Amino acid sequence: MTTSIADLRKSYERAELNEDASHAAPLQQFDQWLKEAIASEVPEPNAMTVATVGSDLRPSTRVVLIKGYDERGIVWFTNYDSRKGRQIAGNPYVALQFHWVELERVVRIEGIVEKVSDAESDEYFASRPLDSRIGAWASPQSQVISGRGVLVANAAKYGAQFMLKPPRPPHWGGYRLQPDQWEFWQGRKSRLHDRLRYRQDGGAWVRERLAP
């Protein structure tokens, strides 16, 4: 018997999120939740959705991996010539989302994006596995290609050219999102979910509850 998608439901009852138990600073709250996701061994706790908007005003999303975070913002690395890279170049306002299904939690982050320094991109690129470094050269990300053979041929070409020491491609590096708004969502019973938003006001973070 086929189950209707409209009938798929789940009762969220694992935890709660209230003002008294949450941190006054959103970065501290994020740090706690991310560490709990890692400790809980949820699948790919570092995976986040990146949403950008192009010049045609059409939004697009994709999943990338967070590679760092501190008071300056959230960092990830990618191909600057990709669709997201081109969209960020035209519109630096970006939204991120983490969804830890097993913990019934979502974190949404909004802000403006800038490239990290060349030194920071170089340092991270050098730490990547060799195949990933070659892959950064081999893939013309987001471009139409005739088949997978193009990637295989490119990987062989750049592998032979650079051997064990491929440099960082000029079109590849890091982005840092500087948050101006965070939202922490904790699933609750009867769809009365907990939502705490942090927004900047005069250089300080204001924490407020949103209705679910």
Rank of each mutant, 00 (worst) to 15 (best):
residue 119 A to Y: 00
residue 120 E to S: 00
residue 121 S to M: 00
residue 121 S to P: 00
residue 121 S to C: 00
residue 121 S to Q: 00
residue 121 S to A: 01
residue 122 D to C: 00
residue 123 E to R: 09
residue 123 E to Y: 07
residue 124 Y to K: 05
residue 125 F to M: 04
residue 125 F to I: 02
residue 126 A to Y: 06
residue 128 R to G: 01
residue 128 R to W: 06
residue 128 R to T: 02
residue 128 R to C: 03
residue 130 L to C: 07
residue 130 L to W: 15
residue 131 D to S: 15
residue 132 S to T: 15
residue 133 R to P: 15
residue 135 G to Q: 14
residue 136 A to G: 07
residue 136 A to K: 12
residue 136 A to E: 04
residue 137 W to N: 14
residue 137 W to C: 14
residue 138 A to I: 11
residue 139 S to W: 13
residue 139 S to P: 04
residue 139 S to V: 14
residue 140 P to S: 09
residue 140 P to Y: 08
residue 141 Q to H: 13
residue 141 Q to R: 10
residue 142 S to I: 12
residue 142 S to F: 04
residue 142 S to A: 01
residue 143 Q to I: 09
residue 143 Q to N: 08
residue 144 V to I: 07
residue 144 V to R: 07
residue 145 I to C: 01
residue 145 I to A: 02
residue 146 S to I: 01
residue 146 S to L: 14
residue 146 S to N: 08
residue 146 S to D: 07
residue 147 G to Q: 02
residue 147 G to D: 05
residue 147 G to S: 05
residue 148 R to E: 02
residue 149 G to R: 03
residue 150 V to H: 01
residue 150 V to T: 10
residue 152 V to S: 02
residue 152 V to C: 00
residue 153 A to L: 01
residue 153 A to T: 03
residue 154 N to I: 00
residue 154 N to C: 02
residue 155 A to G: 02
residue 155 A to C: 03
residue 156 A to M: 04
residue 156 A to R: 09
residue 156 A to E: 08
residue 156 A to Q: 06
residue 160 A to T: 08
residue 160 A to E: 11
residue 161 Q to F: 06
residue 161 Q to T: 08
residue 161 Q to D: 04
residue 161 Q to C: 00
residue 162 F to N: 05
residue 164 L to G: 05
residue 164 L to M: 12
residue 165 K to V: 09
residue 165 K to H: 11
residue 166 P to M: 13
residue 167 P to M: 09
residue 168 R to W: 09
residue 168 R to H: 04
residue 168 R to Q: 06
residue 170 P to A: 10
residue 170 P to V: 12
residue 170 P to N: 10
residue 171 H to I: 08
residue 171 H to C: 07
residue 172 W to R: 09
residue 172 W to C: 07
residue 172 W to M: 11
residue 173 G to N: 09
residue 174 G to M: 09
residue 174 G to I: 13
residue 175 Y to V: 12
residue 176 R to K: 12
residue 177 L to F: 07
residue 178 Q to M: 15
residue 178 Q to V: 14
residue 180 D to E: 13
residue 181 Q to S: 15
residue 181 Q to M: 15
residue 181 Q to W: 15
residue 182 W to E: 13
residue 182 W to P: 08
residue 182 W to L: 12
residue 183 E to R: 09
residue 183 E to F: 12
residue 184 F to E: 04
residue 184 F to S: 05
residue 185 W to E: 07
residue 185 W to C: 09
residue 186 Q to I: 08
residue 186 Q to H: 05
residue 186 Q to T: 11
residue 187 G to F: 01
residue 188 R to V: 01
residue 188 R to C: 06
residue 190 S to L: 14
residue 190 S to W: 07
residue 190 S to D: 14
residue 191 R to E: 13
residue 191 R to Y: 10
residue 192 L to K: 10
residue 192 L to Y: 12
residue 192 L to N: 08
residue 192 L to P: 05
residue 194 D to P: 06
residue 196 L to W: 07
residue 196 L to K: 11
residue 197 R to N: 05
residue 197 R to M: 09
residue 197 R to P: 04
residue 197 R to V: 11
residue 199 R to D: 05
residue 202 G to M: 15
residue 202 G to A: 08
residue 202 G to H: 10
residue 204 A to M: 15
